[in-house]
């Protein structure tokens, strides 16, 4: 992904062939079962794979979406589903995930569960993540996805991709279209 310094380029990539929403049944921040397809059916949905012990890209990606979301009309804010799926489920239990997301936007949905399930779900969206591993010093190295995928409320298809270069301005500009399932 060479999306750096693409300041003038559009942040959004509209896909010719949308992704099917992954069939993920995981655990939310309340510790309850969350069926992604069922819960987000007919709702504009943004999905990102990351982890909370991540200083840079994960919090900035989620914060960008949070700030952009606040500029939507209230009804559309309530309609939008922003789903953060952890790639580090051992450390990101429901409580940890909930605490972290509350600091960004209390409406955001955090999902955790079995790593293999999460990895397989990510793979159906073209997102490849390796299991957390330890480096020489025993520190855990986790991986995050490098894309946010937007799903249309009309088709439930994942039709727009955002790379990590997407700024708060990009999301602010695009979300009003995304919540209607239109092309940004």
């Amino acid at each position: 992904m060479v999306s750096e310094d693409a300041g003038t380029e559009k942040a959004a990539t509209v896909l010719d062939k949308p992704f099917e929403k992954p069939d993920l049944v995981l655990t939310d921040t309340q510790g309850k079962k969350y069926d992604l397809r069922k819960e987000t059916e007919g709702k504009p949905t943004l999905i990102y794979f990351g982890y909370t012990h991540c200083p840079d890209v994960c919090p900035s990606t989620m914060s960008n979406i949070a700030v952009a979301k606040k500029q939507l009309p209230k009804a559309e804010q309530d309609d939008l589903r922003v789903v953060f799926v952890t790639t580090d489920p051992d450390r990101d239990n429901p409580a940890e995930l909930g605490k972290w997301l509350k600091g960004i936007d209390p409406q955001f949905i955090g999902l955790t569960g079995d790593f293999a399930t999460i990895q397989a779900g990510a793979r159906t969206l073209g997102i490849s993540i390796d299991a957390p591993r330890k480096d020489k010093n025993g520190k855990v190295i986790s991986e995050h996805g490098t894309q946010v995928i937007a799903f249309s409320p009309k088709t439930d298809g994942g039709y727009v991709l955002y790379g990590e270069g997407a700024t708060v301005d990009d999301y602010t500009k695009d979300l009003p279209a995304i919540v209607k399932g239109a092309n940004p």
Partner: peptide, 29 residues
């Protein structure tokens, strides 16, 4: 890619720059 790895040092080239930026090299506190 999506992994952040600790490095021992980062080079500052002669007549050049070392740029730390979001999505690339960064400090972790």
């Amino acid at each position: 890619g999506g992994a952040m790895r600790e490095v021992k040092d980062l080079k500052v080239p002669a007549h050049g720059e070392l740029v730390l930026k979001s999505g690339g090299d960064h400090l972790m506190f």
